[in-house]
Design a protein around this nucleic acid. Structure first.
Lengths: 247, 247
DNA sequence: CGTAACTTTGATTAGTATCAAAAATGGTGG
DNA sequence: CCACCATTTTTGATACTAATCAAAGTTACG
């Protein structure tokens, strides 16, 4: 549990600063949170639904996703996470996981004991506030996803998903241009949008033909951001980003 | 902003104790939060998507719901709230509302300034922890709703919604038996589950015929809880209730 | 180079939406 | 108390989106 690297958590503080103002002391306290580093294989579970959890996960590299499984066996992806994201405050504070966390790619993470986070929160209200805001933004994204799967057409759902991921990658400084790594299979895009993989495939072909995006197993290029945004009924307010971006 | 009634917020602390342990001092601090009481007409907006918000709402009587509207005009209900619920920590902490809050029935609410909540959180870590847990449980319910609209059939979605509301009403002590007030039109049930009102009507008729529930404009009776639970693929873990209940 | 995973295509079906209108319900004013 | 109006529920007919089933290509990887 030694702090092998003081800067390991830098991407987390950068992320928090997307939506919260942090004083130097707050940042320092967060950067010095004790943590344990780990490498995770692609596809491996970091948390399983129902697990007792007492530490939360900061994603340092790679991609992970959260999901729940219905009684029928159908899997629903709830969120996709990238470098800097605090993935599991929920499960760790509530003690019992109500969903699973799984590695989308090979990933590198830091485990921070829940107790240590509470300690920092008591001494650094600014940090506490930022963490709270982070969970609230998380909630805002969930609400938008309910709207997405509940009310939008297949084309809108997929476009919306890609818009969100594009913007979040840009805000996280992972990419700047219109092309970026997106390691989602069409099956997984379907699990995130409530569609079957066959149907996702057909919609994606239409999106390519319409000149909205180019997409492969590993990456996306947004060909026409403005039309993609329209096609996905996308509006960035729900991401609560301070950062002014192209969109 | 005087404390006209020290016990106005009692239903809120009762709700928090469903999922968090609170010391007497914490409870006291929460009960004494300054607030302003108001009566809200049925259908009126308490918050509109995009509003600047600086106080949060505690629901003292009646029902309210949160919703978002897609570009097409389709409305998605995100959650339904009952007596004791802290409805709007999200919007007030983030400052800008990312969804609307609307009265389902005539309702009575208390507005608590966000600043006052932060003050209590600084002095009473137990209270802070309970409020944080409350927003986390809120998030857990959103995740379940994503699964519900994303992966379940129409029958499962409606059954699941009714199971959730039944259990939450029982936990809040609003009802004890299988019958309770449920002031949702079929239109609104559709907006909560991502279905059209016509289809909701047909499914509800099937549910009645199958002996799962009886339901009118104003109330529901759960005729066969066990089969309703099965039919809705319902499992209560995501509500994170301490209270042991019939279910 | 062989194999598993993923994408693509085709044919068919199922579930839900849409459109339209009739019945029932509930509240309101005369 | 009744007639009227708006809202909600119910019914019917039809269209369409997306699911399902099956299999052939394609890609990536050991």
């Amino acid at each position: 549990m030694a702090n092998s690297n003081t800067f390991a958590l830098a991407s987390m503080t950068a992320k928090l600063r997307q939506h919260s103002d942090l004083a130097a002391a707050d940042i320092n306290a967060l950067l010095n949170l004790p943590h344990r580093l780990a490498n995770i294989d692609q596809g491996a579970y970091l948390v399983r639904d129902g697990d007792k959890v007492d530490s939360c996960i900061v994603l340092l590299a790679g991609y992970v996703y959260r999901s729940k499984v219905a009684g029928s066996g159908a899997k629903q992806i709830l969120s996709v996470h990238m470098r800097g994201d605090l993935v599991d405050l929920q499960n760790s504070v509530l003690g019992q996981a109500d969903h699973s966390v799984q590695a989308l790619t090979h990933a590198s993470v830091a485990y921070i004991p829940h107790q240590e986070i509470l300690k920092v929160c008591e001494s650094f209200p600014g940090a506490a506030r930022a963490l709270w805001r982070d969970t609230l933004v998380d909630g805002s994204i969930f609400r938008e996803w309910i709207l997405n799967v509940g009310q939008r057409s297949a084309l809108q759902r997929i476009s919306h998903l890609i818009c969100e991921l594009t913007l979040r990658q840009q805000a996280a400084g992972i990419c700047h241009g219109p092309a970026y790594e997106l390691p989602l299979t069409q099956q997984q895009i379907g699990e995130a949008t409530g569609l079957t993989p066959v149907h996702v495939n057909r919609i994606i072909q239409r999106m390519r033909a319409d000149g909205l995006i180019t997409i492969t197993r590993q990456s996306v290029t947004v060909v026409d951001w403005h039309r993609l945004r329209t096609s996905g009924d996308f509006s960035r307010a729900y991401l609560h980003l301070h950062t002014p971006l192209a969109a």
